[in-house]
Amino acid sequence: MTELVVENLTFQVRGARLVDRASYALRPGELVVLLGPNGAGKSSLIRTSLGLQTPTSGRVTLGAEDVVSLNPMQRAQRVSYLPQIRPMAWPNHVRDVVALGRFSHGAAPGRLKPRDAEAVDRAIKASDLAHLADRPTDTLSGGELARVHCARAFAAEAPLLIADEPTAALDPRHQFRVMDMIQAYVAKGRGALIVLHDVRLAARYASRLIWMKNGQIIADGPPVETLTAQRLEEVYGVKAKVDNGRVELESAL
């Protein structure tokens, strides 16, 4: 079983401590949401956890191995990473973009082995993109494009998924659809760590919440335990009401 274990991770650039002694674990079967205000160090934590940047101190293990000892392809086979969505360089076809998800298995668009082609088909189906599969990506709406990016992250069929704000700039319906897709991915026995800014969405889908502030993890636990008005005030500086998992944000403090 592939498990991501982060121990005492610190990441520092030019004197600024972006991640400060953070420890957490991500296991298959869990949908973990990482919460925190802008600049809390969420993206840095994710990138350091993936070995995309070298930690100043601390250790990350993926399964039995140290993440820095894995080459990029081996790492990508274990964890699928969906960074914040950037514009595509070329107007590729949807199927080809999803096929890029098979990169870590040695495949490339137009050169898919049967096993890769099946994974791509499954991801396209899971993301409800079958009718768009042959469309160029520059003709898609923002919501459709977000689904394409999710599909390519799913196509890797890695045991773990890490996604940085996959619902950013989406309308409420598409936010639900993307989160439903991720939930279905987790239901197949995989694990996901998702950065969200929408606390209500997080409360609705997460099996666990990790709260971050000033580079530190200040709380880690199921929504029922960690989602409180006091915590929202402490982390985000907002006045809020929390009632039985229902969140109402009232004003900035």
């Binding site: 993936l50 990029p72 990473y81 960074p83 950037r86 595509m88 360089a89 590729n92 890029l100 668009p109």
Partner: peptide
């Protein structure tokens, strides 16, 4: 091909 998605995503893909 991987770089189509940008450098960050391409590194994520295993490049």
């Amino acid at each position: 091909s991987a770089l189509t998605l940008g450098e960050e995503a391409a590194s994520g893909l295993g490049l």
